[in-house]
Design a protein around this nucleic acid. Sequence first.
DNA 1: CAGTTTATGTCAGACATGTTGACATTCCAA
DNA 2: TTGGAATGTCAACATGTCTGACATAAACTG
Lengths: 172, 172
Amino acid sequence: MAQGRHSATTTRGEQLLFLTDEQLRQGIELMFFAYRGFTADPDRMLEERGYGRAHHRAIHFINRRPGLTVNELLDILRVTKQSLNRVLRQLVEDRLVASRVGREDRRQRNLYLTEAGRQLEQELSAAQRRRMRVAFSNAGPEAVHGFRQVLEQMIDPELREQVLRSLEAARP
Amino acid sequence: MAQGRHSATTTRGEQLLFLTDEQLRQGIELMFFAYRGFTADPDRMLEERGYGRAHHRAIHFINRRPGLTVNELLDILRVTKQSLNRVLRQLVEDRLVASRVGREDRRQRNLYLTEAGRQLEQELSAAQRRRMRVAFSNAGPEAVHGFRQVLEQMIDPELREQVLRSLEAARP
DNA sequence: CAGTTTATGTCAGACATGTTGACATTCCAA
DNA sequence: TTGGAATGTCAACATGTCTGACATAAACTG
């Protein structure tokens, strides 16, 4: 599978974009390494409290959409309700999340951050935003625009609309 | 923490970049959703064989740098050697990876993909490259450039040099 | 309106993958 | 040549995912 600058199957359009296998593979690796950096700061802070990324994700989205139901959170996170439930149970026990029976539909549970929950969210988010801010600043506005465009295109097409709507709909 | 379009702490430079907390948070969520899309295809294919992302990562980097040692792979993946060892043991048992005693230093093990390993790597990588290619194509060359710049900046500064070198050094 | 089905959420057990600790082998330097 | 350092392996435990079984509330249906 040794190959030169452009593989035999590369089309003209892809050449203009430098979409050789090699370029694509570099994009793949960059995604891997960048995501590790992206999660590094919160990971450290969470570990001190005995939490993991799953807790962070729950806290993040509950903060973004206070009062959302377990089912709505499941739809965002795409994990099983059993998996989410364990995380939520801990957060509720630790008084970071409040779970209130739904007013209209009493099967539902509306989720809110407590004051302590908001506090932790702030700490986690501040670290992550700091890194994102530095990355954005160093890369410049054009790059930020490109970053967004590529990442949007990387989302599953069936989910893209939902995700982009949810990005806007936060903190309604 | 209710706040308007620009928080009180937003500086002028950040406004020019739209680096409000809200914009940063949207970047954070985009990163989360995009990474899930990024891993979706390989995840499905791996599951059929009873493997996980850990196997994929090992296969990917062994393919990129045939003959690398366990220690070198550890340095890339940043997991414990015990964790990596379990994954490698399975891959060697399943005849996807060959582990040869080092010629100079017999403590080391040099890792290679077998023909079957290369076959699986091709399948996994083809799916991931397809998604990356579509994303890059739809976003356009400028966007791809920006994507790279931002992602590079998101990597831990201490690791950035090493990572960028390793991107280039692959398939030497 | 009684009985059944559907929706939402919880609890229990299994597997994958991360961790730390103990150990065997090999290399190297005093 | 011997003791420490480097490399890799094996074992036990923690976390977070999954599937399955269940409880409760709402919605449907005859």
